[in-house]
Design a protein around this nucleic acid. Structure first.
Lengths: 133, 133
DNA sequence: TCAATTGATGTAATAACATTACATGCGTTC
DNA sequence: GAACGCATGTAATGTTATTACATCAATTGA
């Protein structure tokens, strides 16, 4: 596993997200890090921005929230193509997965249309197996 | 084409979105409909909610904005499975498309995991062919 | 006929999410 | 030690979305 060189704020945010069992909003992160000196949203957003660039944090667009990458152990998501998320609306649990066929189909559509893809979001909202039962 | 029974506010919002060449935010819609009596965000959000239920308007999660369904002519998107969007970050143009293989792969993942999908978001951000050139 | 219900509407206030602008501190480099 | 890059701090503001409460019109059905 590659060692990341994180600043203090980045470490605090990543640690918090890694420990969380649900996605956290920026303002939730802010609240939980007040005791560590966080005072303003910008501190959170700046840390999140860098962590996303590093690929160790993902933003869930349909939730306006953030999760630690669940594949951090494997030198992370840059290797995997587009990441898809399944989000349980009941318990908040998020599953992260990859599918090369989906990547291929999206890439093929883009090729046909001459569309230059920069970032792809795939999010499934629903109920996890435990909550659906 | 099935005829929709829309209220006044719903018609105003749908007409505006249909004419727009870009996604519009709720507050942009509000501003543009002030002359038609719109005064508060809730009027917009209520109309949008119904229009989304009818399938004639889609929300773009990564933009916090809304578009008229581009397949309105064909009794609309309920028939097509998940809709994917390609959004040009330069000109704002949105292309809507469907891919059964992607649907199948997502459904297969969900089946394996026992995940009950309710709503799936697929959005590609990038540059359309015109803007990439 | 007239309560009861339903659904659309209107208004105000507030909550939740995100960015801009500006100032400070702190190493590195030359 | 001046200049630079870059992480940080703080305040203010901008943007997106919801909650709470009131009103009105059409429908229903005893």
């Amino acid at each position: 596993m590659s060692t990341l060189n994180l600043t203090k704020n980045q470490s605090l945010v990543l640690d918090l997200l890694s420990r969380a069992d649900q996605p956290l909003s920026a303002y939730t992160i802010l609240d939980r890090l007040r005791d560590h000196g966080f005072r303003a949203p910008l501190q959170v957003y700046r840390a999140l921005e860098k962590l996303q660039e590093m690929g160790v944090v993902h933003r869930l667009e349909s939730l306006n929230s953030f999760v630690a990458c669940s594949h951090q152990e494997e030198a992370c998501c840059s290797h995997h193509g587009t990441v898809a998320f399944a989000i349980c609306d009941s318990c908040g649990q998020v599953s992260e997965f990859h599918d090369h066929t989906i990547d291929d189909r999206l890439a093929e559509w883009a090729r046909q249309k001459g569309f230059k893809s920069e970032k792809t979001t795939i999010e499934i909202r629903g109920l996890c197996s435990a909550c659906a039962a």
